[in-house]
């Protein structure tokens, strides 16, 4: 199958699969909102000059006592919920994409080298990866942050990366081991191709498809992880917007019946993750040759 053929087949199946289209539209809307945050929100909830305590705990506009511009109400600091959500999604997406990019690149390189060269590098790296994996990304990230304290978004990104790269390394290594056995690799070697050419030109492009699925799934996982860590109080600091922090503040008012402080940020988080997962589901089915296609 030629490259173009594969591309057109992928595109055709993408257009035919409503969940893939819906998923990517959701993700697109979130990304757009996060990028345009300063222009589409009535107030920057983290600009102290714009926030006033007198509007604190306002309900959504359609309820009694609600007022514009606080469409979805305000929190205990007088920050508009909708504005804070949009800024919070910014944090979610920045953390999500940064981790996927950094941990993904590192993991792919490690997996590629370990799979191709084997030997001590493979043994040491994969033992380390297995161990980190056994403890789980969530637990390791929690430990790192619990010990070092979530001082900034950057620290959160680093901590999650330190725990998360193994996901990529393991997948990549497995894929490389499979691809390595192909005759064309042998042939390339026989023509006297250098290692670097073999790795970048032949192994990397052929072994990388499974990584795409990992990227999609991992993006959702990392976004949930950031929210979870922030909710626990070891993630991003109180001075930064985060969906997890919003829900953790809302939890204090759960008995007062101020549901909007939890339900709206929660819904935003779930919608974002569902969007990514819908897309990931389609990608997984598409890249798994073992499953029969839908009629």
């Amino acid at each position: 199958m030629s490259k173009r053929h594969i591309q057109s087949r992928l595109l055709a199946s993408y257009v035919r699969d409503p969940s893939a289209v819906i998923g990517s539209i959701i993700l697109g809307v979130f990304i757009l909102a996060a990028l345009l945050a300063p222009w589409i929100t009535p107030q920057n909830p983290y600009d102290l000059e714009k926030v006033s305590l007198e509007h604190f705990l306002t309900p959504p506009v359609w309820m009694e006592g609600g007022q514009m511009p606080f469409l979805l109400g305000t929190d205990d600091q007088g920050r508009g919920i909708l504005s804070t959500i949009i800024y919070g999604c910014r944090t979610s997406l920045v953390v999500g994409f940064s981790v996927v990019l950094i941990a993904g690149t590192f993991g792919v390189v490690i997996g590629l080298l370990a799979g191709y060269y084997g030997g001590w590098l493979d043994a040491v790296m994969m033992r380390l990866a297995d161990t980190l994996f056994a403890f789980s990304t969530t637990f390791m990230a929690f430990l790192f942050l619990g010990l070092f304290g979530g001082a900034s978004i950057l620290v959160v990104i680093i901590a999650i990366c330190m725990a998360d790269w193994v996901r990529y390394a393991r997948t990549m290594r497995g894929s490389v081991l499979e691809v390595k056995e192909n005759a064309y690799i042998m042939a390339a070697k026989a023509t006297g191709a250098k290692d670097i050419r073999l790795l970048l030109r032949h192994l990397l492009p052929n072994a990388i498809p499974p990584i795409f699925v990992v990227v999609a799934v991992d993006l959702a996982v990392v976004i949930m992880l950031e929210a979870t860590l922030s909710f626990l109080g070891v993630g991003v600091p109180l001075t930064e917007p985060s969906l997890g922090l919003m829900i953790s503040i809302g939890k204090n008012y759960i008995y007062a019946g101020l549901w909007w402080m939890i339900v709206f940020p929660g819904a935003a988080l779930v919608l974002l993750v569902v969007g990514i997962n819908l897309f990931a589901d389609w990608l997984r089915e598409e890249l798994n040759p073992k499953l029969e296609r839908r009629a």
Binding site: A220, M224, A227, I247, I262, G266, V270, V273
Partner: peptide, 9 residues
């Protein structure tokens, strides 16, 4: 797609 802490709350 729903994180554990949100389910609990």
């Amino acid at each position: 797609s729903i994180p554990t802490f949100l389910i609990g709350i």
